[in-house]
Design a protein around this nucleic acid. Structure first.
Lengths: 204, 204
DNA sequence: TTGCAAACCGACCATTCGGTTTGTACACTA
DNA sequence: TAGTGTACAAACCGAATGGTCGGTTTGCAA
């Protein structure tokens, strides 16, 4: 792919992540990428195509993350701590993609990058659920729990961190807004052993 | 306020929640609200003003929620279960507002509804942290935990539920996508006592 | 050197944008 | 009954939108 096309893609990724599909004009992309508007339509047949390409190429990067999560041994505690750390690091590294996917989730939209996002998330999700089910068979995880719920809680707490981050910085009670790793680690610990002191656990 | 103005507001709330600020045109609002474009500018001086009014009036509704959460007795377990249930019910009832706030959080934006959202969330957050701190003093909550983290986890898991809901419905592993109350209840249980069987807890 | 395709530019197009102006129907008051 | 203000519609404005087109440059193979 021509160097200009790459530049267009990267510029568009940043702009779409920051302002959303409707908030970005082709002129804006052309200006910031340092190319003519015509040239954008030479490389991408429409604004829609440009958006889809951005989403697709960004998602492709993420695939590699999945495998690393499965090929891992150790007990449940170790594996979940490792997963959460790798997951949140990935979200932070691919900041623009994370935003883009979050935007897609909000669109009731007809613009079907949504399916891409769903597929992307779905793969990770399914594998994570598998891991959790295995842990249940080994007795490392309480059997009465829904593995899908745990997976949702693990993934969601990480994703939501980035959504709330800017807000959290304004809350005086919060001191973890700038340390995603520490946040994630603490969350996993809570999910593992709960917040109630061992002495006072009764049925809930 | 004139009946037409109310209709404009409600239509705008729905459209802004579905498509975001840039994705909604005045023509669209006028058409769906059944009024002329000029009439919208008669009642609201600009698109920006219309948006701010939507956000403001929607947020005003939410204030009442806060007090109910504090004036509550019982032990920590009961109070948190009640809080989470009330919180997620509120989010579900005010579906459009929830989306709107989530959108605001994504905007790095100059458009300062963000501050409104932060203030709105901040009040709830602070009170929740207070409750948790009290619980720590009473020994109902492990003292080494950060109360702000628990608060973030409680609130975030609920908010994220609605963000991921459409996606979750496509995951065969998930059976709680259509039952927010059950989801929330299960999440609180996990947060309270963790996912690891009592017998195999060691330091993490 | 020539030939050709891809890369690229800038002017242009129809449409839509947020917003304004004009005019009118109706209420209330003098 | 004339006057005044409000609620509304419709026509309209300049600017910006996504997209097209004719033409020029560039790189490479014959």
């Amino acid at each position: 792919m021509a160097e200009a096309a790459q530049r267009i893609l990267h510029t568009a990724e940043r702009l779409f992540a920051e302002h959303g599909y409707e908030g970005v004009s082709i002129n804006m992309v052309a200006e910031q990428a340092g190319v003519s508007k015509g040239n954008i339509f030479h490389h991408f047949s429409s604004k829609e195509t440009l958006y889809q390409t951005v989403l697709g190429s960004a998602c492709a990067e993420a695939r590699s993350l999945v495998d690393e999560l499965v090929n891992r041994d150790g007990n449940l505690t170790e594996r979940l701590i490792h997963f959460a750390a790798a997951h949140i690091a990935h979200l932070e590294r691919h900041y623009h993609l994370t935003r883009l996917v979050q935007r897609e989730l909000l669109e009731g939209g007809v613009r079907r990058g949504k399916e891409l996002a769903e597929q992307l998330c779905g793969e990770n999700f399914t594998r994570l659920v598998e891991i959790l089910r295995n842990a249940q068979d080994c007795g490392e995880l309480r059997k009465e729990l829904d593995p899908a719920l745990i997976a949702q809680l693990l993934v969601g707490s990480n994703i939501f961190f980035f959504q709330a981050r800017d807000m959290l910085r304004h809350f005086p009670e919060v001191d973890f807004a700038d340390d995603a790793q520490r946040y994630s680690r603490m969350v996993v610990e809570v999910i593992l052993i709960g917040i109630v002191p061992p002495s006072s656990i009764q049925g809930v």
